[in-house]
Simulated scan of single mutants.
Amino acid sequence: EHPSHTLAQKLLPRGAGSVFSFDLKGSRAQGKAFVESLKLFSHLANVGDCRSLVIHPASTTHFRMDDAALAAAGITQGTIRLSIGLEDPDDLLDDLKRALKTAEKAA
């Protein structure tokens, strides 16, 4: 249903990449705790690697921005960006679940 789906099918006939973002509810500290507790994901800003990568923009690439500037850039205190690599999917899911629990405790 996404407005760019048809264009994505045309430009990426073999499928879209595995880079996506999601927002944790909470603070910068919770986003940072989430990233720091991951074991399999590498904390790097580049994408397109064969390894799974993670970044928390509010505490790294955009750390100097206040809440208004983050919002204008489409970023929240809890925005997390993931790039999924070639590791075992079950291992990655377990890593993410554990990190979510850690972030929840950091509230």
Rank of each mutant, 00 (worst) to 15 (best):
L92M: 12
I55C: 10
V35S: 09
R28G: 04
L40Y: 12
A106E: 15
F22R: 00
A99V: 04
G26I: 07
H56W: 06
F22C: 14
L38G: 01
M65S: 13
D91Y: 01
T102E: 14
L44V: 11
L93P: 00
R98H: 14
D66V: 04
A8Q: 10
M65W: 11
Q77T: 03
T6W: 05
V35H: 00
A106F: 06
E1G: 15
V35P: 00
T79N: 05
E87H: 04
I80N: 07
A99S: 15
A106Y: 07
D66E: 08
L44S: 02
G17S: 08
D90N: 09
D95I: 07
S37P: 02
K101D: 13
F22Y: 12
A71L: 11
L44C: 01
H56L: 05
G17T: 09
L38S: 03
D49G: 02
M65T: 00
L38V: 09
S21E: 11
H56I: 08
Q30M: 15
I80Y: 04
D91H: 09
L40A: 01
R51C: 04
A106S: 15
K32C: 02
A103Q: 04
L96C: 03
L82E: 04
A16I: 14
A8C: 09
D88L: 03
K25L: 11
K97M: 06
